[in-house]
Design a protein around this nucleic acid. Structure first.
Lengths: 357, 357
DNA sequence: CTGAAAGCGCTAACAG
DNA sequence: CTGTTAGCGCTTTCAG
């Protein structure tokens, strides 16, 4: 594997510099100084033309612009930001995987909102791996992002406290922070699951299964807890007979569901804890003539065509709200940490309305 | 709307600096100099500890590390990269929209491959808007990304020639570059569409419709051209009776398809030119008892459950291949521009095998 | 093995 | 309106 500059291993950087094969200080790229020389003004005057634009004689400015044009000058943001105070116009985002539409939508909402504020998004996928997550966070922080949005797979965020104290706004999305005082935008997981359970109970179901994600994720824990509570309230004490977890991808979910349906007394209804699990469940249910009822957490493309009842919410809005919190902090707001709770909404489309066998 | 540093408008930057409300040079964040002072070594020695690691006495190194730990020191990548030569470990990616799975997968593949090479991805969505695309490209270039991957909505790339000459590797994905000598990874659009047409002809269809994207996109043009040619070859001269374009989202595609089916002699088969168009078509077809055959370009999640025959390909691989080309350039390869053609594969799942009415 | 000096490209003070 | 001086945080010569 080729190794280039900027690696996590310190050595990697040096190798890389060598590998690129050109002198480190690209000698050809024009600098502001050259523009100044060509247009016969001082460095500062040239600088002003590309910034404040105030207090420069129109024809001087024109001359500078012409020189810049001629040379193909491009301002160097790295230098500018270094001077500006070791903080970039970049905001970092850590998500599980861009290829998962839930995360992609968060990124989209965040990007849009940030851009409107003159900031750029730099995102990275952690694969839900806590140690990779830490490495990515460090990387972004060393790049001096002005703030971080993070969907964390880590259970303890104490290691970020130092950064927080240094003033970097940290906003947790989807999963609340642990052991650290930081803003967060989370879903009403309890509400969503409670609605789903009630919906199924109303349709006559008593044997309801829950297929969950990795059990170390706080969202999973909240969802299971709500599931248990709602069933207990309905007098169903052995709720855990049909509760499963650890299904982090569609394949695992599919076999989990097949196993559930193969039980002597199979569940008559299924609650799937996220979009990938729902996908797996749909595959497992395919072609069955008496499929159990199904309600999935997360709305998804084409759920309408597949008649899948879901617990819907708005990931794009989550990204936007995260950015709003972060902008407030950048603007100097010093409140205690805020936690925004986003509503969910049960969208009946058919699969959740099948009555108990 | 809040405006913060780094905006496209020059003024935006200044406003922003003011708005953040803290002194530009964060006084509290420890620098390498402070680490050096605390550990009573020179700046350079401290620097060495975090880089080469070579030629530093073990206990000196330990002392430096301890000091860094104590101070909460974090190296400043901005400063490092400025010194290193005005080129960052960032690679830019311009796509249409992260929330579109096709693009998200490209991003995923690129990110993975880049990370393995010690580089980071910074991506931005252009909404297929050429002028926004240019702004994003400038932004990334000013940030001195070491290379750019771009799915371009622009028809003329001459404006990038200067940058190319300066040595920045440029790789075009999905859509070939125009008026510029740059590497590209594109799909075998002609092959894919030709296969689809032949498949439909074999199933007895003669009235085949084509629902295309924005007609300024080169991929669209290639796909239509292949469509026309394949039909002409089969003796169907009036191919354009059922050819449509401009359906850039699912809604537009849905009404386009409804209109086609409402014709006096409606088409008996549909080819939809991308994933969103296919989605729209599926909505339009829903509930019809004699639906036309359907083949969609791009595979998508759940296509299997909906029995949708598709012209499949591998967007993640496209991202990876783009990165491979780019790494070669960074490593000094000086070949003429290469064009990688990615294969497509017809995946029969039912919808494309319905016979002509 | 370690250090002093110079400078990456740019912008913020202050003068003029 | 314009220029000079200093320096952001770090790394690279080149001497010890």
């Amino acid at each position: 594997m080729t190794t280039l500059s900027g690696g996590t291993e310190r050595e990697g950087r040096d190798e890389g510099a060598a590998m690129t094969g050109h002198t480190p200080t690209e000698p050809n790229r024009p600098t502001l100084r050259q523009v100044a020389e060509l247009s016969e003004v001082s460095l500062k005057t040239a600088s002003r033309v590309f910034n404040g634009a105030q207090y420069v004689a129109p024809d001087t400015a024109a001359r500078v612009r012409a020189a810049a044009e001629q040379l193909g000058f491009r301002p160097n943001t790295i230098a500018r930001e270094l001077r500006a105070g070791a903080r970039s116009a970049l905001v970092g985002l850590i998500i599980g995987d861009v290829a998962n539409p839930f995360y992609a939508r968060i990124a989209r909402g965040a990007e849009r909102k940030l851009r409107a504020a003159g900031l750029r998004l730099i995102s990275a996928s952690s694969d839900e791996d806590p140690s990779l997550e830490r490495a990515l966070v460090s990387d972004l922080l060393e790049r001096r992002v002005s703030a971080m949005l993070i969907v964390s797979s880590e259970t303890d965020h104490g290691y970020l406290q130092a950064e927080r104290s240094l003033g970097t706004p940290l906003v947790f999305l989807d999963r609340a922070p642990h052991d650290i005082d930081a803003d967060a935008v989370v879903l009403d997981n309890r509400g969503g699951i409670t609605d789903a359970v009630h919906h199924l109970l109303r349709h006559g179901h008593r044997r309801i299964a829950f297929v969950g994600d990795l059990n170390r994720l706080p969202t999973h824990l909240e969802r299971v807890a709500a599931f248990e509570e709602a069933l207990a309230e309905a007098g169903i004490a052995d709720w855990n007979v049909y509760a499963r977890d650890g299904a982090h991808d569609a394949e695992a979910a599919e076999s989990e569901v097949r196993a559930l349906l193969a039980l002597p007394r199979p569940p008559t209804a299924l609650i799937t804890a996220n979009n990938r699990i729902t996908t797996g469940a749909l595959r497992a249910l395919r072609g069955r003539d008496q499929p159990p009822a199904l309600i999935g957490f997360d709305d998804f493309d084409l759920a309408d065509l597949l008649d899948v009842t879901v617990i819907a919410h708005d990931p794009e809005r989550m990204g936007e709200l995260g950015v709003e919190l972060l902008l407030d902090r950048l603007a100097g707001r010093e409140d205690p940490a805020r936690r925004v709770l986003m509503p969910t909404r049960l969208l009946p489309r058919g699969s959740g309305e099948r009555r108990a066998g």
